[in-house]
Amino acid sequence: MVWWEQRGAGMSFSSDIPPETMTMPRMIEDTVEVADYLRQRFGQDRILLLGHSWGSYRGIQVAAKAPDRFIAYVGMAQISHQLRSEVMAHDFLLGVHKARGDAGMVRKLEAAPVSMEQGLSPAWMRLRDAAMHRAGVGHTRDIDSVITGIFLPVWRERAHTLRDKINVWRGKLWSRPFFWEDMLRDDLGTRLTTFELPVYFFVGRYDQTANAELSRAYFDGIDAPVKGFYLFGNSALSPLWEEPERATAVLLTDVLNGTTGLADASD
């Protein structure tokens, strides 16, 4: 398994990266180049491509562009139309926190507008993670905050040097503005629905970052030789970590064999 830290992120971050290379076409080409390197190094005609959250936005575009490199594509927390997902998340969280009687969070959410017309307010971007994690619908069902759930575990990771760990966050802050607005408004379901390789979606029932209903609607409109949808009933954004036994079973039984025996039934 290869965990790739893309151009401008983590171990691939460098202050010398030309800003003009931070484009989606270049990111897609980078992914294909890495895939070709791995295929050659390990003597494989095809490898498996898995994209998670933001990685699913790029990954599914790579799958469409270069299907001959891959056994299959797995989209975990598959993005479909992120701005609509943000609007739905805001409405959901407002309802949850109202039902809980959390007047403070309700006031903050009401002062942090999100809309299809105006996009995302700065107040929403500052609030969204905390509101999601408090409701159990963020990165994982049980994460308390980005600090305790992501920052500190990364900081304790021995596989990275101190410089690598710092660059994880430098890269995140530097890279995101190049892609965020375009990704938000891109409705993949209107332009990318035909694939020449098997397509699998791993979706958490409680995911409000990449809305589960939108992922399902996108999946239903896809035409692929084989396609399987897997709703993880106790997961949010990260089924592979939240329900590893089921995810592993699906990967070994269905994905690597091009079958869908463990998939959810179609409506």
Score class of each variant (00 low, 15 high):
A236R: 01
D45R: 10
I60A: 00
L109Y: 05
E86V: 01
R39N: 07
K165E: 07
M24S: 09
R107V: 11
V74F: 07
I71M: 12
L109P: 01
M125V: 10
L188N: 02
E242Y: 05
M27V: 11
V34H: 03
L38G: 04
F178C: 07
R191Q: 15
I222R: 04
V250E: 08
I47A: 00
V32M: 12
T148S: 15
V106P: 01
L49F: 10
P18R: 00
V74Y: 05
R26T: 14
Y73F: 15
F179Q: 02
K65F: 09
S115E: 10
I147F: 14
Y206G: 00
V2A: 13
D144G: 15
Y200W: 07
V2E: 14
D102T: 00
T253V: 11
R128W: 14
R158W: 10
V87Y: 09
L214Q: 12
F195G: 05
V114R: 05
S115L: 07
M22E: 06
L184I: 03
A159Y: 11
R41H: 10
R158D: 14
A99V: 02
S53H: 08
W54T: 00
D164S: 03
L50N: 09
A135Q: 02
D267R: 12
L49H: 05
A131T: 06
S235G: 08
R163W: 08
M76C: 12
Y73G: 03
D68W: 13
H133Q: 15
K165C: 08
T209D: 15
R58V: 13
S12H: 02
Q208E: 14
A89S: 13
D187L: 01
E29V: 09
E5R: 05
R69W: 02
R141D: 04
V114A: 03
P19V: 10
D129F: 13
G189R: 07
A77C: 11
T31W: 04
P239H: 05
A224Q: 05
S238M: 13
R46T: 11
Y206I: 02
Y200K: 03
V96I: 14
L94Q: 07
I147S: 04
H139Q: 12
R246C: 09
L214R: 03
D223H: 12
A64G: 14
A72S: 08
L240R: 00
D30W: 03
V255H: 06
Y37E: 13
L173N: 14
R216I: 06
Y73Q: 04
E117H: 06
H52P: 08
L231E: 11
M88D: 14
R191D: 11
M22N: 11
G51E: 01
L188D: 02
E33G: 00
V106A: 05
S266N: 13
E243S: 08
L38T: 02
F92L: 06
K108I: 09
V62P: 01
